[in-house]
């Protein structure tokens, strides 16, 4: 456990193993909330926030499950944890930070069932990360999601004004764009060797 290790995890989560472009997790909000850059940033921040929190919580839940020999229940238990966590955070924010609550708005409850959040929890367990590594992986994974959705939204915004063939208008060209972006991110795969 050293700083370089954490850096490696961060770079891996943001670029090499980007949740969207290499692991294909969280595609639903990626396509759904990427029509405007500002909503995309809102969604990305919300995901980052929840992924960091979820990593921390599921770490302890996983310890409990392992202690009792119930590893096979990870998925179910994690879903439970994440769902209640998001609910709790929503209530807390509504009271304590109304401005942030209105800014994130509808995205927060949407994340409850986001597979990227469940994915980060399960990957933490798979990679045998300790607590700090888990949290770092969660937050940087969220930042990777933020980067991906922001880039995609920015391209989609300009696509609105581009002359696309009739049959590609709207969603098809967006999917092609996503594929090209994913190809671009493939270029990072040779960069980090530790993972």
């Amino acid at each position: 456990m050293s700083l370089t290790n954490l850096l490696a995890i961060s770079l891996g989560a943001i670029l090499t193993n980007n949740f969207i472009f290499s692991q294909f997790l969280g595609i639903c909000p990626f396509l759904g909330v990427s029509k405007k850059t500002d909503t995309a940033i809102g969604m990305g921040l919300a995901v980052t926030f929840v992924m960091g929190l979820a990593s921390a919580f599921t770490f302890f839940v996983n310890k409990l499950l392992v202690a009792l020999g119930l590893e096979y229940m990870q998925t179910v238990a994690f879903i439970l944890v994440i769902a209640s966590l998001v609910q709790f955070v929503e209530m807390f924010m509504k009271k304590a930070m109304p401005t942030l609550y209105t800014a994130l708005g509808v995205y927060l409850p949407l994340i409850t069932t986001n597979c990227a959040v469940l994915g980060v929890a399960l990957l933490n367990v798979q990679s045998n990360y300790n607590f700090i590594e888990s949290v770092v992986y969660g937050i940087t994974g969220g930042l990777g999601f933020l980067l991906a959705i922001f880039l995609f939204a920015a391209v989609r915004e300009s696509l609105e004004f581009a002359e696309t063939p009739k049959c590609f208008e709207g969603f098809p060209i967006a999917l092609i764009t996503a594929g090209l972006l994913a190809l671009g991110f493939m270029g990072f795969s040779g960069m980090v060797v530790w993972q």
Binding site: L70, L80, Q87
Partner: peptide
């Protein structure tokens, strides 16, 4: 029994907290 207890316990705990 453990599985049921743990999951039920977690759910109940979260429920109460919420």
């Amino acid at each position: 029994i453990y599985a049921v207890l743990v999951l039920g316990g977690l759910a109940a705990l979260f429920g109460i907290v919420l």
